[in-house]
């Protein structure tokens, strides 16, 4: 799947993403920049993203195929359907010190399992209520729809969520205060 004719151009074009770390050609400079950044903010969030296999995970792959550049501060867990994500998974993530959790599925009408994403909405409402009960800001959780063709959108959705969680600072449940690069 490799081999875009315009690799370099695309990388350039993609580097305008909003919240991602500033792009520098060398690893050294990037790291230096990073250090400056962490002195300023001193916070890189831990974010878990649940992505459904058919749309959102595929959309993330599509972002790759198109070399969209976006924030790396998240880790994806693939599930077959967004409807699989129980509130318990999200709560566990927070218990273990996550600063934000996102669930991403197919747009309405696109679900591989017809109405799985509608059920994800119901689950997410419960999740949100529980998150609030824990005393967490509900902005730390998000439910998004990204289709298999929406690589650009995937990048934007991630960037926006990372920025949002970063602005909230570390989760009050994140006792470890462990830094990850």
């Amino acid at each position: 799947m490799a081999g875009k004719t315009e690799d370099k151009k695309k990388r350039k074009a993609g580097s305008g993403s909003t919240a991602g770390p500033k792009k520098k050609p060398s690893a050294k400079k990037a790291a230096a920049k990073k250090r400056t950044a962490s002195r300023k903010k001193d916070f890189t969030p831990n974010i878990v993203v649940f992505a459904c296999n058919w749309c959102s995970y595929a959309g993330a792959d599509n972002a790759g195929v198109n070399r969209i550049q976006y924030s790396p501060n998240f880790r994806v867990i693939r599930t077959m359907c967004s409807g699989r994500v129980t509130p318990a998974f999200v709560l566990k993530a927070f218990k273990l010190g996550a600063d934000g959790v996102m669930v991403s599925g197919c747009h309405f009408g696109d679900c591989h399992y017809i109405f799985g994403n509608y059920k994800a909405v119901e689950q997410f409402e419960k999740t949100k209520a529980l998150v609030k009960t824990l005393g967490l800001d509900e902005k730390r959780v998000a439910l998004e729809w990204v289709s298999a063709a929406e690589g650009t959108r995937w990048g934007e959705v991630i960037d926006n969520f990372v920025a949002q969680v970063t602005s909230l600072g570390p989760s009050p449940l994140n006792h470890s205060k462990k830094k990850r690069t």
């Binding site: 696109d110 289709s147 063709a149």
Partner: peptide
């Protein structure tokens, strides 16, 4: 194609 109507699925 970008997407197909009316479901707006991706075309590939």
């Amino acid at each position: 194609l970008d997407k197909t109507f009316p479901t707006m699925d991706c075309a590939i």
